[in-house]
């Protein structure tokens, strides 16, 4: 199934009471291919979350249009498209645990599927499966979601999105506020879900290690514009671009640059992970 996401000169802002905010997306052109895993980075307030909301019809373009699969979001009138787009695009918000509301965990996870017309019995099976997927014991499904720990709540919330069986998964800093172990567990969960279901995945993150480890493509945003859209390796290979936008580089890449400066030896490839760095060092005989 083709699930491209395409932005055509999209400009958007928020209407805030009496005051209209400045543009948060400014003539954004973007093409995300089916099955790609893209990380979105950029400084705080650069419009990353807004970009994700636009993909889900939650932030409407003032100019331009957004195409998700075969639905087009243009304005308020694209109402018909919303439901379809929201079923296809599963969106995990920042701190998604704040959206939990139901009496039991099972009911909460079933909420999405039921809204999209899945029969109750089937929804319950999906919920059970989703709980296993996020690494929780299915036995807790009759407990209240409010009785869980922060990390467990996060998993339940993510399960609630996965249960909608989206074809596109967009996540806004899913690891924020979790301990390193919880974070890497959630990240590998997302990666395996991405691979098993051939999803198109978009991930907003502040952590360059995540970008290096999990993503194939990367988008850099600045003041509502996409300033870089490239393969992850190409971005980190180009130190000029990295410095121009004030980005961090992954630990291994920083180490590589340091070694190259100290020894004067140029390693054969751009290393994004410690394993790659070790291999490259062995190749040139530095270790």
């Amino acid at each position: 199934m083709v699930m491209e996401i395409k932005f055509d000169k999209v400009t958007a802002d928020y209407q805030l009471g009496p005051i209209r905010s400045p543009r948060v997306l400014e003539s954004v052109d973007l093409l995300l291919e089916t099955g790609s895993f893209t990380a979105v980075i950029g400084h705080t307030g650069s419009g990353k979350s807004s970009l994700l909301k636009a993909m889900n019809g939650l932030l409407l373009p003032r100019e331009g249009k957004i195409t998700v699969g075969d639905s087009v979001i243009e304005s308020e009138k694209s109402k018909k498209a919303f439901k379809k787009v929201r079923k296809q695009v599963g969106m995990v918000f920042q701190f998604p645990e704040s959206q939990l509301f139901a009496e039991t965990i099972e009911q909460d996870i079933c909420f999405g599927p039921l809204n999209f017309g899945v029969p109750l019995k089937e929804a319950k099976e999906i919920a059970l499966h989703a709980l296993e997927q996020v690494g929780l014991d299915p036995g807790i499904r009759y407990k209240s979601p409010f009785s869980l720990s922060g990390g467990q709540k996060r998993r339940v919330a993510i399960a609630g999105i996965l249960a909608m069986r989206p074809e596109v998964l967009v996540l806004d800093e899913p690891g924020a506020g979790l301990d390193p172990k919880g974070k890497s567990e959630i990240m590998s969960l997302i990666t395996s879900w991405h691979n098993d279901n051939q999803l198109t995945t978009v991930l907003v993150t502040h952590d360059m290690e995540d970008v290096a480890t999990y993503a194939e493509d990367v988008i850099v945003m600045n003041k509502g514009k996409i300033v870089v859209h490239d393969r992850v390796r190409n971005l980190f290979a180009n130190q000029n671009v990295v410095e121009k936008w004030g980005l961090d580089v992954p630990e291994a890449r920083r180490m590589q640059l340091m070694i190259e400066r100290e020894t004067g030896v140029t390693l054969p490839s751009v290393c994004l992970t410690t394993d790659e760095l070790a291999d490259a060092l062995m190749e040139v005989g530095l270790v």
Binding site: K53, N56, L58, K83, R86, S98, Q99, F111, G112, M164
Partner: peptide, 16 residues
């Protein structure tokens, strides 16, 4: 703000 956020989140889960 929070109302807006929760509304967005539930809308993303198919509430109209």
């Amino acid at each position: 703000d929070e109302t807006q956020k929760v509304m967005d989140a539930q809308r993303a889960r198919g509430t109209e």
